[in-house]
Design a protein around this nucleic acid. Sequence first.
DNA 1: ATGGCCGGTGGAACCGGA
Length: 268
Amino acid sequence: MKIASFNINGIKARLNALGDWLDEAQPDVAVLQEIKSVDEAFPREMIEDRGYNLETHGQKGFNGVAILSKLPLEDVQRGLPGDDSDTQARWIEATVVGKQAIRICGLYLPNGNPVELNADGSPVAGGKYAYKLAWMERLRARAEALLAEEMPALMAGDYNIIPQAEDASRPEVWRDDALFRPESRDAFRRIVNLGFTEAFRSRTHGPGHYTFWDYQAGAWNRNDGIRIDHFLLSPQAADLLLDCQIDKDIRAREKPSDHVPIWVELDL
DNA sequence: ATGGCCGGTGGAACCGGA
């Protein structure tokens, strides 16, 4: 079973690019981020005409996630638990049953910039960085609950986290950024260290592997990228891991997203 | 040459992204 994640940066602007990639990559399941659409306006036909079931969790203008699958999507849940006042559409999960069942979570973790800190180094309450760190604490709680199920499960998406210096072409320019600050990376590690396998790094080592290149400053042409889209696998899912790759070439096409797809192949 | 963008909203600039 091939499961992919792709931050498409707007479904309406990505109809052709997404359709072409689906036709070629043929994922069995894909989680999408930044659909930037309300559910009613999502162009379902381009997904469903290709034989996929589709569940969306959108909002107006920004954010928004979706999950599509050639097999039925069961027990769909929208929204990350832990804060009923959070109206941002950043989380969707569903179960897909292949040889066995797997719980698949798609996420769009908050960017967190600008970083605003108090004199004691704590994030300013109500600020975007505080929201990012609070969201990651809720993610950790959901991750713990997933592990307790002791079944194949994964959390995939745009984490907006550069895990290590080798995951950025120019790590020095990211030093004080919400994607790379110690608090952000610590929070990411606290989740991974609960017992997840970061799929890409379990198979590929060394620098130069990115999933995002900014539209600005010729970042793609200079290969000035960062690796911020990740798959975290529960132990039971990690046992099934056959492959994990980044579809880098997508970034060179017409009207691309600023992210490229990443996928895992599981023995499911 | 170290600057350079893009999508959505709403119908012009502005917000958000990373």
